[in-house]
Structures are given as C-alpha cells and as structure tokens.
C-alpha cells in the first residue's frame, strides 16, 4: 500500500507541476514575455513580406480639455484604455506617415519632422503574430536616438510609445501594420 501511495503522490505532483507550468505560460501577459535577451533564430521564422502591407505611424498629442475633441478614427477603439493609462481625455494627431513594407529593408517613418523612426520589418510566421511582423525600431528626436525596440505586431494591433512631455500634454507615438 505504501508503494501505491508513493507512486500516486508522484503522479499527482508531476501533474500539478506540469499544469501550473502550462498555466503560468498561458497567464503571462504578452508584454511581459520579453526576456531582455536576444531572440534565438530558432524561436522566430520569417517569410516574405506580403504585398500591400504598410507600416503606419502617427504622433499624437494627449491633453486634458474641458470639452475633449473626438479622437481620430484609427484610435477610437483604444481611447478608453489610453485615457486610463495616460490620464488624458483628448487625443489629437500631430502628424502621420506610412511606408510599404519591404522585407528586411530599413524604412524611415517620419510622422513629424522632429520625431521619426527607423524601422526594419521581417515577416513573423509564428502563430501568435497572425501574419504580422518582427520589427526592429529606433525612435529618434531630431538626430538623437531615444530608444531601440524589438517587437512583434499583428496587423491591426497598434503599439504605443510614451514619448516626451510637450507643452501641457504628452506625446504618444503609434505604430501599426495595416
């Protein structure tokens, strides 16, 4: 009987450990999955860019206004979340830019003269990316680099960058594949 109990305990513990490991992987938010280490070649496979895919970027000024103006159409779905995150109620375009995606080629997106970015996109064939791209992005203010980022974006899923304070508002940079 003692052998039976020991065996059953092992099976139970192994099952619980595996289930919790799976659950931890499933629960980990996408943004927290970054490990601040290089992605190994085996983790990401790439395919050719699809014709017609575009990288679209915009610089937005978030402010607080007594009577906020309607947000740009492309952002309306995200206004409640952005309001909660940044604490502003009005979001206005300062400028936008878009570029056709050429696989592995560096593109310059300049939604404004001052804030611009250099982006290199490669097709990500991972299931989660759903036909999206692996991006290497450098954000600049004038000629000064601010941040270098590696990200995966699915089409229609914008990524936001909290930029500098501007006047009494906040600059937010949006990047999306469309």
């Amino acid at each position: 009987m003692s052998r039976f109990c020991v065996l059953l305990s092992f099976v139970l513990l192994a099952g619980i450990a595996r289930a919790q490991d799976d659950q931890t992987r499933r629960d980990r938010p996408v943004g927290q999955q970054m490990n601040f280490g290089k992605t190994t070649p085996g983790q990401e496979s790439h395919g050719p860019a699809r014709a017609g895919d575009e990288l679209w970027s915009a610089v937005i000024l978030a402010t607080n206004a007594p009577v906020p103006k309607a947000a740009p159409v492309a952002l309306r779905a995200y206004v409640p979340q952005l309001s909660r995150l940044f604490g502003y109620n009005q979001f206005e375009y300062i400028g936008s830019d878009s570029q056709k995606i050429t696989d592995g080629t560096e593109a310059r997106l300049a939604p404004t003269k001052s804030l611009w970015m250099s982006v290199k996109a490669r097709r990500a064939t991972s299931k989660e990316a759903r036909g999206g791209y692996l991006l290497n992005l450098q954000l600049y203010r004038d000629e000064k680099p601010l941040v270098d980022t590696e990200a995966r974006l699915a089409p229609g899923s914008p990524m936001f960058i909290r930029g500098p304070q501007y006047g009494n508002g906040q600059i937010i940079v949006v990047l999306q594949i469309q």
Partner: peptide, 8 residues
C-alpha cells in the same frame, strides 16, 4: 490584438 515587445 497582438503586439509584443521583445526587447527595449
């Protein structure tokens, strides 16, 4: 929605 920052 899928936007994942791998490194920054």
């Amino acid at each position: 929605y899928f936007a994942q920052v791998i490194e920054v």
